[in-house]
């Protein structure tokens, strides 16, 4: 039947990032079988991926509204620093649990500042988050230029501990991604996010408080940056002033590779997850092939260019399939 054929085609197109992930993984198995045939490698890819993965999810969320957040990685750095500083320097007797809450809450608060600027004060998202990028970045160094060590064990658990041989970071990350997927596809808030990305003026005319939705999205994205901070802290075992530095490029790359439209209103969390996994596979593969970090950086740029071209092509094919005949 023609309809079923179209559904299969759509299914393949919508999940192309995962198909490419499988192809890449198989290619690396041939190139480095001893590394890529082990489950340990999959676990490592996911664990490392989960750190920047939260930032990809956060950026994807903001991009879906047709905005962007350049300050997310700096938010991660600052919320980690504030959390570490409060529980280790200011109030050393505080429980690690409080530290966890502080990090996520600070992340959310920093995100809310961006949301207020963009949603309520109608600042251009690029300029607003470029400004907060600088503020968050230098505020981190202002608090402490260096490292905070000897952190409570529970404070580093998210990024360090394992359950049943699997790092908690992976479980938290996949769980959060799943919840975010449900939130975006099954709730009124999610529908409003897509509607704003598709046409903010129309959405406003339909009686939806666009400013509030944008404020909510940036706040949620900030909380995801805070979760990313917790994973980083656990992975490193300390808080440094360089946490997540430069990772904003990966956040954008993962989201775009995963099919999130820069214009807003298009893309899925499942796709963004694929983008994260693809970046992880490429990174692991190139590391095992002993490619230098410099060459890897250049290659990542080319990967992004190819991803953009594929997405442009896919959009056209998708439209052809969806167009009523």
């Amino acid at each position: 039947m023609a309809i079923d054929k179209d559904k299969i085609k759509l299914g393949l197109i919508d999940n192309i990032v995962w198909i490419i992930c499988i192809i890449l993984y198989i290619a690396f198995i041939f190139l480095r079988p001893q590394g890529f045939l082990s489950l340990q490698n999959v676990e490592t890819i996911l664990r490392v991926g989960s750190m920047v993965g939260f930032l990809v999810l956060a950026e994807a969320l903001v991009l879906l509204t047709g905005n962007m957040d350049l300050s997310l990685a700096q938010n991660t750095g600052l919320s980690a620093m504030i959390g570490g500083y409060v529980i280790r320097v200011m109030f050393p007797d505080l429980s690690g649990w409080i530290g966890i809450i502080i990090v996520v809450a600070v992340g959310g608060l920093l995100g809310a500042i961006n949301g207020f600027l963009v949603g309520k004060l109608k600042y251009n998202a690029f300029l607003a988050t470029l400004s907060t990028y600088l503020i968050f970045d230098w505020a981190t160094f202002w608090i402490r230029r260096g490292t905070i060590v000897k952190l409570p064990s529970i404070f580093v658990a998210a990024g360090d501990y394992k359950i049943g041989g699997v790092h908690i970071a992976i479980i938290i990350f996949l769980g959060v991604a799943f919840l975010l997927h449900l939130f975006l596809t099954r709730t009124e808030f999610g529908l409003n996010v897509y509607a704003i990305g598709g046409n903010p003026k129309t959405t406003e005319m339909m009686g939806i408080r666009v400013d509030n939705v944008i404020l909510g999205v940036f706040t949620l994205a900030g909380m995801l940056a805070g979760l990313s901070a917790l994973i980083y802290i656990g992975y490193i075992g300390s808080v440094t002033s360089l946490i997540a530095q430069g990772r904003i490029f990966d956040a954008f790359a993962g989201a775009i590779i995963g099919g999130i439209s820069l214009r807003g209103g298009r893309g899925t969390i499942l796709g963004a997850l694929g983008g994260i996994v693809m970046l992880g596979i490429i990174d692991a593969g190139l590391t095992m092939l002993l490619i230098t970090p410099e060459a890897r950086g250049v290659l990542n740029g080319f990967v992004l260019l190819i991803a953009i071209a594929i997405n442009m092509y896919i959009t056209k094919v998708r439209d052809r399939i969806l167009e009523p005949r």
Binding site: L191, Y194, A195, G198, N199, T202, T203, M206, G265
Partner: peptide, 14 residues
């Protein structure tokens, strides 16, 4: 109307 949303979602938007 929001072009990228389905007819149903457009009808019920808001």
């Amino acid at each position: 109307l929001v072009s990228a949303l389905s007819i149903t979602k457009n009808i019920f938007l808001g």
